[in-house]
Amino acid sequence: MTQFSQSRLDSIDIAFYHTRLSYNRRKITNQIMLIFTGILTSLALLPLVWIISYVVYKGGQYLSLDFFTQMPKPLGMEGGGVLHAIEGTIILTVLGGVIAIPPALLAAIYAAYHSNTILGIAVRFGTDVLSGVPSIIVGLFVYALVVKNQGHYSALAGGIALAIIIFPTIVRTTEEMIKLTPRTLREGSLALGAPEWKTTLSVTLVAAANGIVTGILLGLARASGETAPLLFTALGNENYEIGKIISSGVANRQGLLAILNRIFEQPVDSLPLTLWKYAQQPYPERISQSWAAALVLMILILVLNIATRIWLQRRMSRLQGR
């Protein structure tokens, strides 16, 4: 008996000896892999850092407060800003969001709860295809649909084009978020006798709000950076100034609807559009303005992103009481 256990102990010792040897080897392998993944991660981040720093470097030289608050000046004159494009970007993005969000949410709810019905499958397939459609084609489509019929380019047409572009993003993220909310949460509400629509509205959507808002913002951020669909729809307009439209509207005692109509019926510029046009011009002044516009666009999206992140974090901590 003792003999047996002694030999067992020996074999265990030997096993541990080998383990100790291979432990060093594993440790070295682990470190090599760690360094390797670290290098690859830095490589992946490099373009991002490069782009941002280059834009900041080139655009920062021209950037000033005037650039945000002034309308463009005629060629050959010093100074001038891109106020028209900032206003246009905001108008187009908000318009796109207002048009896209309500139907996107409804479609997402339908697809989440009736995922096995024909319509549910169609929604999912349709949004997948739509998100793959090149944005220039969306622009052409809206041109044919709206601009041709209206007879002129307009902010409205641009908004519609952007709405089509962000629609699939919002549908898919919302659907995923609704599916991620625990089933028991819905059951808790249904067990109290709440009808399904009430449950969805006041429990599911509230629980999924963080994800849905994130999805919407991703869509809006993408929309605000789009150029191609706006070429045939919003066109661009260096004389667009909301302040003037509103003040002249108020002076002429026009109603709110009429003012809104005037805002939406004109062609409008946006930051990416301006950037694109300025960059093609042979004047160094315009080239620098183009860089500055790129920086403004980046700042706009960054501010939007950070603001929502803060809002989401506040909401989360409120919900979790920390």
């Binding site: 028991t184 808790g188 249904l190 067990a191 109290l192 629980a207």
Partner: peptide
């Protein structure tokens, strides 16, 4: 469902 309430396996307070 109003007359017969229910409590579930995992606590499911609404958000």
């Amino acid at each position: 469902r109003r007359r017969v309430g229910m409590v579930f396996q995992r606590p499911n307070p609404f958000p």
